[in-house]
């Protein structure tokens, strides 16, 4: 090899990316981090930790708060003190739960950290099944249904998510490399998300699209393939909303169609937090981006989120009759033989 080729090869083999020391003032003050999603009729549970300077080691178990004073009060002055149950988790000693449509404020005081306060509402989700009817299916392996639901909206800005699932005899298991049809001993069922279509034009496939009027997909053939949709109450503020869903579920000899539809009513605080996380996922790995995406927080003096959410579940079969695990006896369902 000629000498010049060695020189050229050496030049091009030098690494372009190397560590760099940056000039900056490392005067970071840690803050209380609140992680709390609360729902009516579910026991108060708050996860507390503290933030660290970005260059510190990140054994997060070191940074949970175990000796904080945590108080939650509502607008009428009712106060609840949470106690530490281990690993930074604080719960109500009396197993108290939030009340629907009530605004709560949390105050956290931890030694060496600034006081953190946050406020959010415990929303209520109310949904009822209006009817379900079967319609002819073009595909003999599927059965098609039209389901009508009614959502009762409360006054104030509300954000919703809706998820549709159906029960499937437990006959498939996922293996690396792909799906494999396989018999399973012992029977059972599993809930799977199913694609659905809706006549409600405000439905979107992701949270950031909800406030975007152009985020709608325009096609008869387009549906919510992940079985999940998001929307706000902008078009039915404080009123009831009738929503029709069109969906297909596979036909099984061993199991008649059983559906589970859930609606979640999100507090604005939790909705915004989740929306920011979505944006952060998009932008974080982009080195061309000069302006980082800052994660939203409703915790004054701290970080994280304190937000309410309420879920309402509807479980019904193809005739509109409700079901539950005990009645259905899912353990006894025969394995799928597809």
């Amino acid at each position: 090899m000629k000498p010049w080729t060695i020189i050229v090869a050496a030049v091009f083999s030098w690494h372009c990316s190397v560590p760099v020391e940056l000039e900056f003032e490392s005067d970071y003050t840690p803050k209380v981090v609140v992680n709390a999603e609360f729902a009516p009729d579910e026991e108060w549970m708050v996860q507390l930790s503290r933030s660290v300077a970005y260059a510190d080691s990140i054994d997060w178990s070191q940074y949970v708060l175990t000796n904080a004073s945590v108080r939650i009060h509502d607008s009428q002055g009712n106060m609840e003190s949470l106690i530490h149950m281990g690993k930074g988790i604080y719960q109500s000693p009396a197993s108290n739960t939030p009340r629907a449509d009530t605004r709560y404020t949390i105050t956290v005081n931890a030694p060496g950290l600034a006081e953190a306060r946050a406020s959010s509402i415990a929303p209520s989700a109310e949904m009822a099944l209006v009817d379900i009817r079967e319609v002819p299916s073009a595909d003999s392996t599927n059965r098609s249904f039209r389901v009508r639901l009614r959502i009762e909206d409360q006054p104030g800005q509300d954000y919703y998510s809706l998820a549709v699932q159906y029960l499937r005899p437990l006959c498939q298991k996922e293996e690396s490399g792909g799906w494999e049809i396989n018999a399973v001993e012992g029977g059972g069922t599993s809930a799977y998300s199913t694609r659905f279509d809706s006549d409600f034009p405000a439905m979107r496939t992701s949270i950031p699209d909800v406030n975007d009027p152009s985020g709608a997909w325009s096609s008869e053939a387009f549906g919510f393939i992940d079985g999940q949709a998001y929307f706000s109450d902008r078009s039915f503020e404080g009123e009831s909303k009738l929503i029709e869903l069109a969906l297909n579920v596979p036909h099984y000899e061993a199991l008649t169609p059983h559906l589970q539809i859930s609606v979640a009513n999100w507090s604005e605080e939790l909705w915004f937090y989740t929306e920011y996380l979505f944006l952060n996922y998009i932008f974080e790995p982009n080195i061309f981006e000069d302006t980082p995406k800052v994660i939203y927080s409703n915790v004054h003096g701290g970080l994280g989120v304190f937000g309410g959410i309420d879920y309402e579940y509807l479980r019904f079969d193809h005739k509109g009759a409700s079901w539950n695990e005990e009645d259905l006896q899912v353990d006894m369902i025969q394995p799928c033989t597809q």
Binding site: L22, F24, Y28, P30, K31, V33, N35, E37, Q47, S49, R50, S51, V52, A53, Y54, D56, I58, W60, Y63, G88, L277, D290, T291, P292, L303, G304
Partner: peptide, 13 residues
């Protein structure tokens, strides 16, 4: 440049 100052853990996600 605009650097992060701190980090924190989200136990929900």
């Amino acid at each position: 440049i605009w650097l992060p100052a701190g980090r924190y853990f989200d136990y929900n996600y």
